[in-house]
Computed example of a mutant assay.
Amino acid sequence: MTSSCAPGRPGPIVLTATVRSSDGTVPTGPISFSNGSTVIGSPVLDPSGQATFTPQLTPGRARITAAFAGVGELKPSTSRVLNLRVGPGSTCVVRERSHHGTNNSNNNNNADASGGGGIGHKRHHRF
């Protein structure tokens, strides 16, 4: 998952999730974008396996994830957390570094990440 936010590039926040399978199958269906535990939108994947969404967020910090529910033999998957600082009108303030999940119990910002793989599944996908 990516956002349009980058240092020195203020503007509206646009989120993009891309889902790919290991065998080249292009998945279909919705992607659920969430801020923490609250779903903020569920756009449908386009024919290239991408979903783009312009959220309406409250100014402050946002912890965004994208989740694919799975379809057919494709297993559900959730992206890593994307930490954003949101300005008025859902604009980018600063792009912060995403925290990748670790086994370090001192890291309170662990991100849930799934590559979508699993034993017994013929097709796997990833964000």
Results as ranks from 00 to 15, higher is better:
residue 124 H to E: 06
residue 59 P to I: 01
residue 112 D to F: 10
residue 59 P to S: 09
residue 60 G to Y: 04
residue 28 T to G: 11
residue 59 P to V: 01
residue 127 F to Y: 15
residue 25 T to C: 05
residue 66 A to N: 08
residue 64 I to K: 13
residue 117 G to F: 07
residue 87 G to R: 01
residue 127 F to D: 11
residue 5 C to V: 01
residue 19 V to L: 09
residue 63 R to S: 11
residue 20 R to D: 13
residue 123 R to K: 13
residue 22 S to F: 07
residue 58 T to G: 12
residue 48 S to A: 13
residue 92 C to L: 06
residue 30 P to W: 00
residue 104 N to E: 07
residue 56 Q to N: 11
residue 57 L to G: 08
residue 88 P to M: 00
residue 116 G to T: 06
residue 49 G to N: 04
residue 13 I to C: 09
residue 92 C to H: 02
residue 81 V to L: 10
residue 119 I to T: 02
residue 121 H to G: 04
residue 23 D to E: 05
residue 9 R to L: 10
residue 83 N to Y: 15
residue 98 S to Y: 14
residue 75 K to Y: 02
residue 61 R to V: 08
residue 72 G to R: 05
residue 49 G to K: 04
residue 74 L to M: 10
residue 7 P to W: 02
residue 16 T to E: 09
residue 68 F to I: 10
residue 85 R to T: 00
residue 81 V to Q: 12
residue 72 G to V: 02
residue 98 S to N: 15
residue 108 N to Y: 13
residue 86 V to S: 06
residue 13 I to T: 06
residue 44 V to D: 07
residue 63 R to A: 13
residue 110 N to W: 07
residue 89 G to H: 00
residue 24 G to H: 10
residue 29 G to W: 03
residue 124 H to T: 08
residue 45 L to Q: 11
residue 15 L to H: 07
residue 109 N to D: 11
residue 84 L to H: 02
residue 31 I to Q: 12
residue 101 G to C: 08
residue 122 K to H: 09
residue 73 E to C: 13
residue 98 S to I: 06
residue 58 T to R: 11
residue 8 G to T: 12
residue 23 D to V: 12
residue 37 S to N: 14
residue 48 S to D: 12
residue 97 R to M: 07
residue 22 S to I: 09
residue 71 V to L: 05
residue 49 G to E: 02
residue 83 N to E: 12
residue 17 A to R: 03
residue 59 P to R: 03
residue 93 V to Q: 03
residue 89 G to V: 03
residue 2 T to K: 14
residue 53 F to I: 03
residue 114 S to M: 12
residue 9 R to C: 04
residue 94 V to Y: 08
residue 41 G to C: 04
residue 85 R to K: 11
residue 99 H to I: 03
residue 29 G to M: 07
residue 116 G to E: 01
residue 100 H to F: 14
residue 118 G to E: 04
residue 123 R to D: 14
residue 121 H to P: 01
residue 112 D to V: 10
residue 110 N to M: 08
residue 15 L to R: 02
residue 82 L to C: 00
residue 84 L to S: 07
residue 61 R to D: 00
residue 77 S to I: 12
residue 126 R to N: 15
residue 125 H to G: 15
residue 66 A to Y: 09
residue 106 N to L: 14
residue 57 L to N: 01
residue 69 A to L: 13
residue 37 S to A: 14
residue 33 F to Q: 12
residue 71 V to A: 14
residue 28 T to E: 03
residue 20 R to G: 08
residue 52 T to D: 01
residue 92 C to W: 02
residue 120 G to Y: 05
residue 93 V to G: 14
residue 41 G to P: 14
residue 86 V to M: 00
residue 34 S to V: 05
residue 16 T to L: 06
residue 99 H to E: 04
residue 61 R to M: 08
residue 32 S to R: 15
residue 49 G to T: 00
residue 75 K to N: 12
residue 83 N to T: 00
residue 66 A to K: 11
residue 61 R to C: 07
residue 43 P to V: 02
residue 110 N to Q: 12
residue 116 G to R: 03
residue 49 G to R: 01
residue 3 S to V: 03
residue 42 S to Y: 05
residue 66 A to G: 15
residue 30 P to E: 06
residue 21 S to W: 01
residue 28 T to S: 11
residue 18 T to S: 14
residue 123 R to L: 06
residue 31 I to H: 09
residue 73 E to G: 14
residue 26 V to Q: 04
